[in-house]
């Protein structure tokens, strides 16, 4: 049995019951950043050094989407044979930002519509001898499937 680990632990809490992206928020102006900003707020009107780690919203609305039908180069670790996948850009309401992710296995662009509700899920990105590496993906929220 392989260990299930986050493919990017500092960005993504992969616990299956509550998958969350981890960003940072400025304690002074409350700007959000993803991935985390390590030393200073990037709002030019602020620039404070006081940032806190926060989980980002786990759902949002679909801003745009596409797919990839040809195998990308390394460092993408592709299954053999290559399997196409969709990619979503999802707008988070509280954070007022758009975050990319692959779309859950089995969901094609024909299943997607700009404006639909999407939620964060955990899936396996790739495996090696020891580990299964988990990543965040976006999936149409329950009741949103077109």
């Amino acid at each position: 049995m392989k260990n299930k680990v986050s493919a990017m632990a500092s960005w993504f809490d992969a616990r299956p019951e509550r998958p969350r992206l981890i960003g940072s928020r400025c304690r002074s102006c409350r700007s959000y950043f993803f991935p985390r900003e390590s030393f200073a707020c990037r709002n030019p009107a602020c620039g404070a050094a006081d940032l806190e780690e926060v989980p980002l919203s786990a759902s949002g609305t679909l801003w745009s989407y596409t797919d990839n039908r040809y195998q990308p180069p390394a460092p993408y670790v592709s299954p053999e044979p290559f399997a196409p996948y969709a990619i979503a850009a999802v707008e988070l309401a509280d954070e007022k930002m758009v975050v990319l992710g692959q779309v859950a296995n089995g969901v094609a662009t024909a299943d997607l519509q700009v404006g639909m509700r999407m939620e964060l899920v955990v899936e396996t990105l790739y495996s090696d001898d020891a580990n299964e590496y988990l990543v965040w993906k976006w999936a149409p929220a329950a009741g949103s499937r077109s």
Binding site: C26, C29, R30, S31, F34, D94, E95, K96, M97, L100
Partner: peptide
């Protein structure tokens, strides 16, 4: 100019417009 609210290559996310 901040916040850049259109996703730019090679980023994973846009800037946040929550504060500005």
């Amino acid at each position: 100019r901040y916040p850049n609210t259109v996703i730019e290559m090679p980023n994973f996310a846009t800037d946040s417009a929550a504060a500005a």
